[in-house]
Design a protein around this nucleic acid. Structure first.
Lengths: 201, 201
DNA sequence: AAACCATACGGAGGATGTCTCCGTTTTGTC
DNA sequence: GACAAAACGGAGACATCCTCCGTATGGTTT
């Protein structure tokens, strides 16, 4: 989880780097337990730093979230590459990628909300991240469209939002795990070209 | 917007009734302008009543929201009856009902969130409301399934959540009105039985 | 119409949370 | 070891939610 960018000018001071990493670790755990709306001051206290230190490193909740997701970036990128390398058809690959997105957006309780906001707000750290994944979604989607297994009028952005929405429905819907699955199938049938749809129970 | 239930014991005091109605009106306007997360204290002030008065009538944000939606209930119920009376096929009726739900959930910015929470939380004023509309959704869905135009494995609850999700995506997505439309089509194709799907440009 | 009391009002204030400011401390360099 | 730049910490300004309780008002009774 170190972020020591080599060669770039003079690196950050040692204590700053240490604190930053530690805050990130603490925040990851705290958000896991309390959802993304957990108190930032509480995170600072738990990490053993002053509130000022936390806010200097991460000016607001979104920045902290963005940093947290960047740390997880590697994982999702790896997944993307693994899916790319699969011998399966384009439709299956797209489906797997969307599944990965749903899982990614569900990393913390309540995460879909800021992600959706970021997706439409642009020009924010989170927005950049989302934009990148929309591009990837477009890549898989285009392949499926060329293959004839995905409707032509669908856009990557729409599927990305649909994945967020699925994750959003799953949040706090623990009483009914079916619903998330249902949304997934609904989406699956939604983008599939006629005749290739799968009831996906 | 009066809520004078006739015959039920001794009604509320006149000033209480007046305040309640006025708070409701003020809240409707305030939420329209600032979304459902607007400050409750600000609403009280704007309505010219003390905070205590607001909280006595509506113990929390959800209660206020529920009262606000109850006022709109009549409208949606009327729409439901109108759809029922239509000569169109069951699929078309289901589609129109889902459209109505999407519009309903978009009455205020940010409304889908508490609605989703209420849907999965049950036993809350909002939860009751949602439950009722899920039942209606089931009614329209069942007709479409009997007609053979809707997949058998879909449930009303899922479509209800999908409608909320669509409204959720639309929120703050003004930069891209397409997305909401896309989600709608995606869902439409998702529940339609094979062969009856419509690309819904 | 005056008195009575249940009902309702208002707004100060406790609790929690976000974020800023600035005096103090730490780090890296010379 | 001394110096300046970088970073720290936590008090406190400010916003919100919500409660508590002394005070005012409305309806009823005589």
């Amino acid at each position: 989880m170190s972020t020591t960018a080599p060669g770039k000018g003079r690196g950050p001071r040692a204590d700053a780097q240490r604190n930053r990493d530690h805050i990130l670790d603490t925040a990851a755990q705290y958000f896991s337990e309390h959802g993304v709306s957990g108190s930032l001051d509480a995170i600072a206290k738990k990490a053993g730093v002053g509130a000022g230190t936390l806010y200097r490193h991460f000016p607001n909740r979104e920045a902290l979230l963005a940093a947290l997701l960047t740390a997880r970036d590697e994982e999702l990128v790896k997944r993307r590459d693994a899916i790319r390398a699969e011998p399966a058809g384009a439709a299956s690959r797209l489906e797997q990628w969307l599944d990965a997105l749903i899982g990614w957006a569900g990393a913390f309780d309540g995460l879909p909300e800021p992600l959706r906001t970021a997706t439409t707000t642009e020009t924010s750290p989170l927005g950049m991240t989302c934009q990148g994944y929309i591009t990837t979604t477009d890549e898989f989607l285009l392949a499926a469209q060329k293959e004839g297994t995905a409707r032509a009028e669908v856009r990557g952005r729409d599927l990305f939002l649909a994945a967020l929405a699925t994750s959003w429905v799953r949040d706090a819907a623990m009483a009914d795990e079916f619903s998330a699955q249902a949304l997934k199938s609904l989406t699956r049938n939604g983008w599939a070209a006629s005749g290739t749809a799968d009831s996906g129970h």
